[in-house]
Amino acid sequence: MNTKKHRISNPTLWLTILCLLTGNLLFAQHKGLQVIKIKNTQQLHAYFKYTGKDIPLISGHRGGTTKGFPENCIATFENTLRHTPAFFEIDPRLTKDSVIVLMHDATLDRTTTGKGKVADYTWEQLKKLKLKDSDGKVTPYGIPTLDEVIVWSKGKTILNLDIKDVPLEMTAQKLLEHEAFSHVMLTVHTADQAKYYLSQHKDAMFSAFVKTPAALKTYEAAGIPWTQVMAYVGPHNKPENKEMYELLHQRGVMCMISAAPTYDKLPRATARETAYRNIILDGADVIESDLPIEAATAIQPLLPAKSAKQHFFGKRK
């Protein structure tokens, strides 16, 4: 594994050169989509299983935002997949008439042309709004429903549903309706939440908050299968994580650091690059980021030359 720290002044140029030199096109930009090929829950579990020889994974927080592409938007997901395979953490919320849409905030003001609470609008009313990008610029894209995103994502990527205001029962029913447990995982904050989902579908996959040994014990006491867990260990890459990496890796569990509230906000690209690489070098297996394309470029030198998981990655027009 190449652990040398590069300083990238032009990430796209460097990535192109690197791919040509190494022949590793996993993260190379191209016109089509770089997809994650998952057909059933067994493959989903295998994709997230820690083996010690895994390809570091990228999660697009809210899809991954960039100029012209708003968060929680299908066009944004596709833009990310044109550069790197990734799965996506997204935010389901309920409208006034109980349609599940994607929206991180409880209010519309920051990310749309509307104002007020999402829950005060019907779906027909929300259809008339446009999404804004991270700079506040209005885009041509509208708010998607969870139904639309589940249908779009099948055969392309994995969705990770965060917990907002949608009842667990409604979320489980939606996945059953679409037969989507094969490519949709569920964020859970507690073992009890995971236990409920397992009562609805025995093969449900989780992005679980397991930040401490005490939290780990609650999942074990509840009988949550570790084969169905990816562990979120927090937003900071710190020495204290080493204990959790060891405990979770012993159980075959991949560990995720979210750079969204921390390292994504570093003002210099070189500082972010170093931070993303150090997350992987220090023992994490997954980076969740608002800047998934940049994070994928940064960790390119850390990809293993060969991996048994290579077959999960492919391309689509």
Rank of each mutant, 00 (worst) to 15 (best):
K127G: 06
H83Y: 15
L247M: 13
L291V: 02
Y47N: 02
T274W: 06
D264G: 07
M205V: 05
V149C: 04
R251P: 02
N72S: 12
K202N: 11
A119K: 13
V166C: 09
H236K: 14
I100V: 14
L303I: 14
A269E: 07
I17L: 14
K137T: 11
A119I: 15
A208G: 05
Y197T: 03
H30A: 11
M103P: 00
W123T: 04
K195D: 11
N241Y: 03
H311N: 10
I100H: 01
K156T: 06
Y276N: 02
L126S: 04
W152C: 04
T262S: 15
F88I: 02
T297E: 08
V138K: 11
G23R: 06
M230K: 03
A208F: 07
Q310H: 09
V101R: 00
A222V: 11
T66E: 08
K5I: 15
A180F: 09
L175R: 01
K5Y: 12
P144M: 11
Y219S: 03
S182W: 02
V99T: 15
R93P: 01
N10M: 10
G252K: 04
G63K: 01
L94I: 09
L108F: 09
K128P: 00
V138W: 05
C255M: 12
P70K: 03
E179L: 04
F88S: 00
